[in-house]
C-alpha cells in the first residue's frame, strides 16, 4: 500500500516542486546570514517568472515547434538581470536607507505582485502565453540506474542547477573569505567594521544575490515547471521559502532538507488523493504545512539566528 503511494514518479515530482523553494531559500539564506531579512522574495519571484517567460517567448524563432536553446538562455539571462535590479533596489532600501526590514519586504512583495501582472497585461494583453521551456535532460549512465535514475537524473537543467547550488552555498559560506565576511557581518557588524570589512558592501552583495536567486526561482516555475505565466502564480511560495530558511537554521543543507520535505509531502498528498484514498482534500493539502512544523519539533537544533538579523548597521563616527 505504502509502495503504491511512494513511487519513483512521486519522488521525482517532489524534487521538481522543491526547485523554486531551493533557489529562493538559498538566496534568502545569504541575505539572512549577513543580517538582512527580505520578506519580498515572493514579489521578486513573480517578476522573474514573468520576465523570463517574456524573453523566451520573444526570442523563440517564429514557427519553432520544440524548445529553442538560445531563447531559453535569454530567459535565464533576463531573469538574472531582473533579479539583479530588484535585488539592488532591495539593498538600497534595506542597507543604505536602513529601512525596517519587516515592512520593506511587504512593500517589495506588493510591488512585484502588481508590477508583474501589469507588465503581463501591457505586453501580452493578459492573454495566457505558453512557451517551450527547459526540456528534461537524461544524464548519461546515471539516468539508467533503476528507480534512482528516474527520481534524480531525468530532470531539467534548472532543477540540476538548483541542487548544485546547495554545496556551492555551503562552500561559499563556510570555506571562503567572502563567507567569513558574510557571517561576521551578520553576527557582529561592529566588530566586522572594526576589522575593516565594509558591512554595507557585503550586504549589498548578499541581498543582490538573493534577488537574483529569487528571480531564478520564478523562472524555474514559468519556463521550466509550468511554462506559462499567470498573475500571482507563485501562490505564497516565496513566503514558504523564507520559512524554510528558519527550518534549515541558516545552513544550506538544512534548507535543502526543508525544501525536499515540504515538496515531497506535497507530491505525496496529491498522490494520496489521486489514488482515491478517502481523506478530505483540505486535510491532505494541510499535510506539508503540519509535517514541516512537526519535523522541526523533533529535529530542531539549538542554533541561534544571526545576531544582527533585521538590525540595520550605521557606522559610528
Amino acid at each position: 500500500m505504502i509502495g503504491d503511494l511512494i513511487t519513483a514518479s512521486v519522488l521525482a515530482s517532489g524534487i521538481r516542486l522543491a526547485t523554486p523553494y531551493l533557489y529562493a531559500a538559498l538566496g534568502e539564506t545569504f541575505g539572512q546570514r549577513s543580517g538582512v531579512l527580505n520578506l519580498g522574495v515572493e514579489g521578486v519571484m513573480l517578476m522573474g517568472a514573468f520576465t523570463s517567460l517574456w524573453a523566451v517567448h520573444e526570442f523563440t524563432p517564429a514557427g519553432a515547434t520544440g524548445y529553442d536553446a538560445g531563447a531559453l538562455a535569454m530567459g535565464v539571462l533576463v531573469a538574472i538581470l531582473v533579479g539583479l535590479i530588484m535585488g539592488l533596489a532591495t539593498a538600497v532600501i534595506n542597507v543604505t536607507l536602513q529601512a525596517e526590514q519587516g515592512i520593506s519586504g511587504i512593500g517589495i512583495y506588493l510591488f512585484g505582485l502588481g508590477m508583474s501582472d501589469l507588465l503581463f497585461q501591457k505586453v501580452f494583453g493578459g492573454n495566457v502565453v505558453t512557451v517551450n521551456g527547459f526540456p528534461k535532460v537524461y544524464l548519461p549512465v546515471l539516468s539508467d540506474i533503476p528507480v534512482l535514475g528516474e527520481i534524480f537524473f531525468r530532470q531539467n537543467l534548472l532543477v540540476y542547477f538548483a541542487f548544485a547550488l546547495v554545496p556551492v552555498t555551503w562552500f561559499v559560506l563556510n570555506k571562503t573569505t567572502l563567507g567569513l565576511k558574510i557571517r561576521a557581518v551578520g553576527q557582529n557588524p561592529e566588530a566586522a567594521d572594526a576589522m575593516g570589512i565594509s558591512v554595507a558592501r557585503v550586504r549589498y552583495f548578499t541581498v543582490t544575490l538573493g534577488g537574483v536567486l529569487a528571480s531564478l526561482a520564478g523562472a524555474s516555475l514559468s519556463i521550466s515547471l509550468v511554462n506559462v505565466f499567470q498573475q500571482n502564480m507563485t501562490a505564497g511560495q516565496g513566503f514558504i521559502a523564507v520559512a524554510l530558511v528558519y527550518f534549515g537554521s541558516w545552513r544550506a543543507r538544512g534548507v535543502m532538507f526543508g525544501a525536499l520535505l515540504f515538496s515531497l509531502v506535497n507530491a505525496l498528498q496529491l498522490q494520496v488523493r489521486t489514488k482515491g484514498i478517502d481523506v478530505p482534500d483540505e486535510y491532505a493539502a494541510m499535510a506539508p504545512y503540519v509535517l514541516t512544523i512537526i519535523a522541526l519539533v523533533f529535529a530542531s537544533q539549538r542554533i541561534d539566528q544571526p545576531a544582527a538579523l533585521t538590525k540595520p548597521f550605521e557606522r559610528g563616527e
Binding site: 515530482s13 516542486l17 523554486p20 509550468v226 499567470q230 482534500d281 483540505e282
Partner: peptide, 15 residues
C-alpha cells in the same frame, strides 16, 4: 485546494 498554484496543478497532473 488552490485557484492560483500552477505548480501544484502541474504536480497533480504528473501524479
Amino acid at each position: 485546494q488552490s485557484f492560483s498554484d500552477l505548480a501544484l496543478a502541474a504536480a497533480a497532473a504528473d501524479a
